[in-house]
Design a binder for these strands. Structure first.
Lengths: 99, 99
DNA sequence: CACTAGGCATAGCGACGCTAGGTGTCAAGC
DNA sequence: GCTTGACACCTAGCGTCGCTATGCCTAGTG
């Protein structure tokens, strides 16, 4: 999943604010199981994205379980658009080479 | 370019047998500069693919310069098809998550 | 009570590709 | 004749990045 992780995470959170576990779940489900991120992949990445100012987080307790809810910052939204453009350019390039 | 390198190399050589330098050049040109592989990326990868039985190579001297020409083996062709399928599945999955 | 699902966190490893350096030929320009 | 740049190959070593493995905690279910 190398190199495209941030794009996936940002996109999943852009749909609606989520906590880490739910992000992984959402990605797994909307990709029909094709993309199944380990927790050890998701949590450090979210932490990093927050450190980079692309996400902000807040704690919420639901049914005795604490959740860290992430949402996109303005910079995060901009980054997502950029990631989307890069993704398009990348797939077009690969397509051009491999057809 | 992580994870997709083999696909690109196999596809470029599948079009026609090439030597390392020409492979990088072909990929750069057909991707319109978007994918520009360093030689330190290409040569070890070709060597690895040959070791895996997906490519075979032969030396040729053209104008005093020696070239190592690579071509796909039968296994290489099969692998290319597999890579193509995986690429399609992967892009579909990312598309599903990010739209 | 044990087990599963939900939920967060992180140390450490391994894969992978790139950086940076090296060798050598040939053609063109000063 | 010397330098520069394109052509062509090769490799040691590094850095990034994501995943494995593990630990901790709560709530619900058989």
């Amino acid at each position: 999943m190398k190199g495209h992780l941030d794009f996936l995470l940002l996109a999943a959170i852009a749909r609606e604010p989520r906590h880490g576990y739910a992000v992984a779940e959402a990605i797994r489900e909307s990709s029909d199981g094709a993309i199944d991120l380990a927790e050890g992949t998701v949590y450090p990445a979210l932490y990093r994205l927050e450190g980079a100012g692309l996400l902000s987080s807040s704690w919420k307790t639901v049914g005795g379980r604490r959740r860290r809810i992430y949402r996109l910052t303005r910079r995060g939204r901009r980054r997502l658009e950029q990631e989307r453009n890069e993704w398009t350019a990348f797939t077009n390039a690969v397509q051009a080479v491999t057809t």
